[in-house]
Design a protein around this nucleic acid. Structure first.
Lengths: 296, 296
DNA sequence: GTACCTTACGAGATACGTAACCATC
DNA sequence: GATGGTTACGTATCTCGTAAGGTAC
């Protein structure tokens, strides 16, 4: 991307300081030096006079700055116009969420639709055993996933939901008459195995493999959907940690949801394929960032 | 380089044909398709309506074309101005050549200096045992080398010299009273070994390892400089093929230069580090291209 | 069936960061 | 010796070409 070099040049022309330029553009100082050095080599002329104490534009640099600034402004204005056209053009965003989270996201969706009247949002369902596939196939545009998400091809955007966690257990379970449980209690029970498709680092952020004291939490039988999990829990074969939101929207017979008082709050963030972002997705992310996370 | 994508977009907007666009920009048709597809994904809007029969701009595309065309023109004008400033700023180009080739290149240098009065050309000497090092270290900006040159970090520019070839041999050599020799004659003699620093494919373009009929041409003792070669030849220990130009400018005692009548013409081309081109180098190359090769 | 746009995939080039280096005050 | 620009080098990403795959006429 040669445009980046131009951006670096223009920023340095403004800041007259390599370190600050690097900071502003979120790159390393070395990168700024390289970019400028390369431009100067290509052009065959110094754009900046610099010692390690002082940076200033040469006459050629000053002239180039004016020309490029103008060009870049035009360019970005053109692209922005095209993007704006896109947002007005009736795009539908398919957002994958767990269970009823879509309802809790109503404020975000409303704000987004208000800002972008041409657009629409549809929710699709995802589940913990396979959190990324629908995104990667293009079936969904955005997923709302608990963090951390560390997939090389996915971008993690703003957090949209935060909340506590509950333990689902059978009403007949010895712990069921408590007011709350501790993560330590998990060590004495099986939790549902979500299967091999979801990366372990991600699953274990919700379903830990060890208690804070280090005791192993055994994985029991596998389940792929939310209802399979519930049925294992109902049968008393497993307990299972879930987001607090689940307790708010579900009241299945034979199951109790008890707060896990020592589990850290969990965050759900917008996530999308890095290679497939688009103005609509960025607009949703922007709206989410402006709104801030919704706390349960 | 995101600028390339813009260039591709603008060209396609003009041609309305992926194949022709690819041809004009010297890229594959797939690349054009990829570039446009990516732009459209990023912008979230179609820029072209297309079937496999017909390509046309959408309204958004039409508008974007106008904006980007203007921006790109400005940008290139700015860069061109800076380049022009560079050419006026008294650059000195260090050109590495073999022996007296610099004299033969006088017409090129004169034309170049006439076009770019602020610039200067200095010649440095190179020799066949180590043709690239001075270029890579930055001691020289350009080398005039016989072809083929196939180094990944070097760019081969226009051919500046072409000429026949001669065999240097001792005046006491049995062949010395001929009018000319054949490549086949080499098989009965040792040729000078230029050492391991020069790549074999390049050396053998001047000093073949086999005759056209396939007989091996034995390599004799090693020599690093032109004068070392001559002294081996004078001593009768070797013969050695050289460019015709050598015979024109040298008349060393005890050595005869006989035309090799069946050796193909050899070409010498401007060569420089791909990563270190500059307006001055490009200007020299342009002048050379306009002038055409000088035939001996 | 043919012209021509798109997709899949791999190799090569490029961008960028880390770390060490060098210069100025 | 502290601040700040440069150089060397490794790696992750991106570019681009080849080849196979669609689709409209």
């Amino acid at each position: 991307m040669e445009l980046r070099d131009i951006e670096i040049f223009l920023t340095l022309a403004e800041e007259l300081h390599f370190g600050r330029t690097a900071e502003r553009l979120h790159v390393s100082q070395a990168r700024v030096s390289q970019a400028i050095g390369r431009q100067e080599r290509r052009l065959g002329v110094a754009l900046f006079d610099r010692t390690s104490r002082r940076v200033s534009l040469t006459p050629v640099g000053r002239r180039l700055r004016e020309d490029l600034q103008q060009a870049l402004d035009l360019l970005q204005a053109g692209l922005a116009r095209a993007e704006a056209a896109s947002l007005g053009a009736g795009h539908t965003l398919k957002v994958g969420v767990f269970g009823h989270a879509g309802h809790e996201l109503r404020p975000l969706v409303d704000a987004f639709l208000a800002r972008h009247p041409g657009c629409d949002v549809q929710f699709g369902e995802i589940n913990g055993s396979d959190p990324f596939t629908a995104l990667r196939t293009g079936d969904h545009d955005v997923h709302v996933l608990w963090l951390p998400v560390a997939e090389p091809d996915l971008t993690v955007g703003p957090t949209v939901l935060t909340g506590g966690r509950v333990l689902a257990l059978s009403t007949g379970h010895p712990l069921a008459d408590r007011d709350s449980v501790s993560l330590e209690d998990l060590a004495d029970n099986y939790v549902v195995d979500l299967g091999p498709e979801a990366p372990e680092y991600w699953v274990s952020a919700m379903v830990p493999t060890r208690t804070p004291l280090g005791r192993r939490i055994p994985r029991g039988p596998a389940a792929r959907t939310f209802h399979e999990i519930l049925s294992l829990v109902t049968a008393g074969r497993c307990v299972h940690p879930l987001g607090e939101i689940v307790a708010r929207y579900n009241n299945p017979p034979g199951i109790a949801f008890l707060p896990i008082h020592d589990a850290p709050t969990i965050q759900f963030a917008l996530t999308w394929r890095s290679n497939h972002d688009s103005p609509v997705i960025r607009a949703l992310a922007q709206t989410a960032a402006d709104l801030g996370p919704i706390s349960l």
